[in-house]
């Protein structure tokens, strides 16, 4: 996977959510994890890489293509990706099945029949067969996140972006969703995720970026960063979050 970021800025009024980020991901990396303190800019960075927002300045280059700045081109780029947020991903007026089908038919132009077939495949893979007809409010948080994940991968996205996909879940549901994400990693899915689950990041990510105050404090191979960080701030952060 090739992601390059040049002098990226994203400012919201006075807040510099992303404040001059440069990064070049090694081609060998398949899973990139963003970690760091709350408010450090992880979600913003993900939205920029995913083409959900356009940056104040700077460029993002994915697979040698610079992300367009105008909405139309950006929309096409977004269609090729999958995105999962912390919570509230699903549309409450649609059943689980229709949540998965809607983007397939309306965004990707599949026939209803083909979309249904595909939806049933992913639903089976994610152990959701029993919940197809339920609406989001009838599903547990973990089930909702699994449906949302199924929707995000149903069209086989080139890049899957996950923003703290489990931080709103109970520990038990967390494990279920993380298992699925791990399966996707092992199946070769290219993923960029932000997470507070250090254990998970360490196990599944090839490359880790530590973001704080809108800047990259440190980046590197997962094992190097977790075992032998050179940045005192990063070591401190890791010590604190790994303590319990």
């Amino acid at each position: 996977m090739s992601i390059e970021v040049h002098n990226l800025h994203q400012h919201y009024g006075e807040t510099r959510a992303i404040d001059g980020v440069c990064m070049k991901l090694p081609d060998s990396a398949q899973v990139l994890a963003l970690i760091g303190p709350s408010g450090g800019g992880k979600s913003t960075f993900l939205r920029l890489i995913g083409g959900i927002e356009t940056p104040t300045s700077g460029t993002v280059i994915v697979d040698d293509q610079e992300l367009p700045k105008e909405e139309e081109g950006l929309l096409d780029y977004r269609k090729s990706n999958g995105f999962l947020f912390q919570a509230f991903n699903l549309f409450p007026h649609l059943s689980a099945l229709d949540n998965i089908i809607l983007p397939l038919t309306e965004v990707h132009g599949w026939s209803r029949h083909k979309a249904e077939e595909r939806a049933h495949e992913v639903v089976k893979r994610f152990y959701l067969e029993k919940h197809l007809e339920k609406h989001p409010e009838q599903l547990s948080g973990g089930q909702q996140q699994r449906v949302a994940l199924a929707r995000a991968v149903a069209h086989e996205p080139a890049l899957l972006l996950l923003d703290e996909p489990t931080s709103a879940l109970d520990p038990e549901m967390k494990a279920g969703v993380l298992d699925l994400i791990k399966e996707l990693c092992d199946a070769g899915q290219r993923i960029v995720l932000s997470t507070h689950e250090m254990g998970f990041a360490r196990q599944s990510a090839d490359h880790v970026v530590f973001l704080a105050e809108g800047k990259i404090l440190e980046e590197g191979k997962a094992e190097e960063l977790f075992e032998a960080s050179r940045e005192p701030k990063v070591t401190q952060f890791l010590d604190r979050v790994m303590k319990w």
Binding site: G50, I52, L75, N89, F91, P103, E106, V107, H108, R151
Partner: peptide
Amino acid sequence: SQWLSARAIGLSEGQ
């Protein structure tokens, strides 16, 4: 969050 979700799955504004 509904708008954000819709945007993320690639729906246009009209859609």
